[in-house]
Design a protein around this nucleic acid. Sequence first.
DNA 1: TCCGGGCATGACAACGTTGTCCGGGACCGG
DNA 2: CCGGTCCCGGACAACGTTGTCATGCCCGGA
Lengths: 343, 343
Amino acid sequence: MTTLSGTGPRRVRRATMSDVARLAGVSIKTVSRVVNDEPGVHQATAERVLAAIDQLGFRRNLSARNLRRGSSAGIVGLVMEDVANPFYSELTGAVEEVARQHGRHVLAASSGEDPDRERELALEFCARRVDGLIVVPAGVQHGYLVPEMRAGTPAVFVDRPAGDVVADTVLVDNIGGTVAAVQHLARYGHRRIAFLGDAPDIFTAAERLRGFREGCARAGVRYDEDLVAMGPHDAPGIGATLRRLLRGPEPATALVTGNNRITVLVLRALAGQRDRPALVGFDDFELADLVNPPVTVIAHDVAALGRTAAELLFARLDGDGAPPRRVVLPVRLVTRGSGEVPA
Amino acid sequence: MTTLSGTGPRRVRRATMSDVARLAGVSIKTVSRVVNDEPGVHQATAERVLAAIDQLGFRRNLSARNLRRGSSAGIVGLVMEDVANPFYSELTGAVEEVARQHGRHVLAASSGEDPDRERELALEFCARRVDGLIVVPAGVQHGYLVPEMRAGTPAVFVDRPAGDVVADTVLVDNIGGTVAAVQHLARYGHRRIAFLGDAPDIFTAAERLRGFREGCARAGVRYDEDLVAMGPHDAPGIGATLRRLLRGPEPATALVTGNNRITVLVLRALAGQRDRPALVGFDDFELADLVNPPVTVIAHDVAALGRTAAELLFARLDGDGAPPRRVVLPVRLVTRGSGEVPA
DNA sequence: TCCGGGCATGACAACGTTGTCCGGGACCGG
DNA sequence: CCGGTCCCGGACAACGTTGTCATGCCCGGA
């Protein structure tokens, strides 16, 4: 049992190949050969070197190695809104898995939906010479990435398209999803359907609103601006919003929520009420089937989103020079009963 | 609108200071001065340099910079079971936030509960010269980190202690939590309480089982081995396990689950049944208050876990040489009604 | 005895950057 | 006109590693 902390030899300089070489009485190059399993080292010499390595706790400096060899850093950068959000952590997990298959690690960071911070993070990752970037765009201007991409750092955008750059992008079918949601509710007789979306400057929020309008049109439901509440939303605000939507002579009888956080806010705000309005939420979430009543959702495969993005990225790294691709992943209406409440 | 992909100038070599210097007609050092905002460069010269930088899309190589300056990489490594698990992503978010305050990024990786992979990841991070490591241990042997820690890469263990190394560790009060859970259930008359825990070689699972036994002793409830089912669990298995526990002449009337995933498995397995046994789950989870009936949990502050670990780490990086600390964070029984079902 | 060849090892430069130090010109006062 | 100072700019080494090439040695064959 070894006790460790800052105590002991105070912050020793890390041993280098030089140190190992000196201790083993050989040249630096020989140490390098041993460390890299290169042939042409006498067994006895190699053993001396290994002993020295062990004694000094030497571990070769990968940064220096990569610098010298011009090899890749072995890291892909991932910039998104919030690493702590389960939606993004599932995305991260999928990216990590593909990266692992390609021998890379993932450097993930949260932009907090702030375009300046996103830019700062992405550019710093480039300065670290990450092999590539996967970005969930916060802003609408990504010209800053053009020099980086030209310089050989490919970027793939996920969940939202880049602002002013045509590049590889992976999206979900936002419009199709909300169209399906409205049609589903209309099929059960709902004529007063409200939409609670995220901030309208977020691409997905705007698209889903578009889909909502189109769904109304297709289903023959009157689109009423008073029944639309775009974010950002918080717990106190959502309560007031719901009261407004659900009162009056023509209250909403059904709700469509624009993402998983809003869905949860709504569920919590409506908890304990006698009868909840019908509800269809964009994004599936764990336990959607176990709340009472279960929540019908527009589900999509978040892992596939990350996987596809990572695969596009590695294709670029492997030299794929095709024109930029835009992949749109399908969504799927998962009915769980709550939508079937007739109006 | 710029179109980008692998097309265009095929994978150009990234511009270096040399290239910039040549284009601007100055020396490398002058470029360095401009890039680093060092004084002593004529304004006209600086502008020529900036123009060249812009034209070439130059961005200085941070690896080379850090190598030369001996400065830190600006990265802390985080090794845990699964980045996609919401529990760990909340942890990651907290670590990231503290890291950000200290000007660092987080390199996160999943060990998949495999000690070999954990070791491999941790050592590779050390080779990358991360500033420090935060590890959720998968195995029980961490002697491999001793040379690294001695060499100046501090490590902090989270959620579980290291196997054979005494180092900074942040835990939650596993025993106190399950003791409280059993006492809570006993108070409502339960005498047949079952425990569903994770694989017993996982530290937290073992501790929580210990707490369960101790809780039984303190509450005067007979501890019955037949009512204990340790994992790993999966969806099909948990159904069979529950049938076994809940049948017979002396069925369990209450359950204690050992972590959030098991809790959810149980909820799903029991969904739709007329009356669910009383349930207390270790770990809080989103929507625990919205399932029916709501789930009483042993809650702890996952973010605090990550924050504390990161703060310990940065204290070490700032030269804190005190003996290793072990911090145990409190847990809190959050009653939500389900435990109050009398036996 | 000499020589060619294979083997083990080492000297050196280079990756891209920054710190140290030095030189040369402009400018000033005497 | 001379010496000193200030300012701008550059040459060079170094960070820790690896690729290239050279060296010394031993061996067998002529």
